[in-house]
Amino acid sequence: MSTPVTSPAPGILTGKRLDELRSQGRAALIGYLPVGFPTVAESVIAARTLVEAGADILELGIPYSDPVMDGATIQHAVDSALQAGVRVRDVFDVVSAVADLGAPTLVMTYWNPVLRYGVEAFARDLSASGGAGLITPDLIPDEAGDWIEASDRHDLDRVFLVAPSSTPERLSMTARACRGFVYAASTMGVTGERTTVGAKAEDLVAATRAAGGEHVCVGLGVSTPQQAADIARYADGVIVGSALVRPLLDDAPFADRIEHLARVTSGLAAGVRHARTGTAQ
């Protein structure tokens, strides 16, 4: 196959950004928001707010009818986005609309919307819109042959997950298949805020590094600046979702919700930035 490759802007690939932050002695804050919630235009404002308030990397979710890895908060947000009529192709517009901020932007998606769109077409359009790659919660590398080829053709990152239940063989296979980072699920469970983050997370990060994971970021359940700081001590990135979506689920006027989102984000960003200097509040 001929490969007219659209190269992403230099320096915005996820791994490169994680390296830069590592050399500054800190982890990344990776913030998740669903595309099209509350509306497509408002989700652009929310995503820009995240970056301006201190998120280093964006994770934009494609709303899906059957989100089996998501807890109640994100389910409600994506249900509402779907009811408001969000389409899969809207993700490319939102990615383009935040590209000028320079934060690597990954798209989080369940696999069927990509299959239906066409794996090659999706990779092409994501690359053209300036997206960095995909996080795929229900696609394991074993089933990802088409996506691995397409992401190679279009220089896109591919982030697969590892879990506390992953065997050493699977950690190493998954680490090899990932580009950008390996997503370590802090706990056995779905997304949602938790008062404590699984103690197994640190062990999982160490095991994933030992298995060859170049960058390892931790998600699931992270909701407070202190939790973010704790994880930022040992991981390359802290992934936060539900705690950022919750301010937007409020009934308050949109401007107030955005302000709330900015406050939550700055708190988490401060937690991440001071983790290794011991000044987290």
Binding site: V68, M69, W111, P137, D138, L139, I140, D142, E143, F160, L161, V162, A163, P164, S165, S166, T167, R170, T174, A185, M188
Partner: peptide, 12 residues
Amino acid sequence: GGRFVPEALVAA
């Protein structure tokens, strides 16, 4: 067919 599941379930 196949196994389109979260990694957390693969061991089980």
